[in-house]
Amino acid sequence: MIPSKFDYVRVNSIDEAIQQLKQFNGEGMLIAGGHSLVPLLKFRLSEPGALIDISRISELKGVRKEGDRIVIGALTTHFQIANDPIVKEYIPVLSETVRQIGDLQVRNRGTIGGNIAHADPAADLPAAAFVLDAEIAIHGEDGPETMNIDSFIVGPLITMLPENSVLTSISFAIPPAHTNAEYLKFSHPASGYPVIGVAVVAGVGENDVIDYIRIAITGVGNVAYRATSVEEKLLGQTLSQTLLKEAAQLAAEEGDMASDLFTSEDYRRNLCKVYTERALKSVFYSN
């Protein structure tokens, strides 16, 4: 399969990227790892006039700790994140999530910025981004701005990324010290993408009362979502197996379940409950 013709420019800075995007006047597209874009180009589902290659902008790479947040440059690859000592120490659930993306070759190439900017409804990362309260840093024509993940991804392959701008980094909140976290995924056996992915960060305080809980689900519908009704059911309650089971029943409530050639809507709804319960049990009872 051969993509349609396009122009190609390689840029070395964020400003240069913005300038080129302006120059191509809506016809230009950024390319990072290319592992979502190149397959689309090959199917001619995407036919940009030009590709603007940002993959060598060094200021967009790497992981650092800033106060109570971990900041990850947009071009940091899945493999680098999976093995980064700062990520492993402070937000291990992110390392666990990216370790489950695609395969060895995909993880070597794909970037966190590309994954979030692409907003594939079946991507793994949005679930972790929701439970770690991700802030998306963007640099546009008017300078830098940030958006929370819950307002950034608005639909399948649709984000609020303004025209002529670059996603520069994503920062994740370090969860409170007493919490545990988990990402559980049921992969499609051929593609490796999640049919469902559930991320949970949670903790209990005195007298076994649940005092911290964030749950997010990806893969089942058009967009990843926070399972707020599960969170509300659990917060402030005394931990028990029965409570977790009851709460997990609510997991499918916020999401629009997709029905496609992989699975029916009912099956997805059921997966939501089963995987949410498993993830909750693992977080609360594994150690």
């Binding site: 290319g34 090959k42 395969d103």
Partner: peptide, 23 residues
């Protein structure tokens, strides 16, 4: 040719990648 089989895998700067999915 659809990024699945890995028959096209090569090393680029020391990292294995699927060459059908790289320009």
């Amino acid at each position: 040719d659809t990024s699945q089989c890995g028959a096209c895998s090569v090393m680029v700067d020391g990292e294995v990648v699927k060459s059908c999915t790289v320009l």
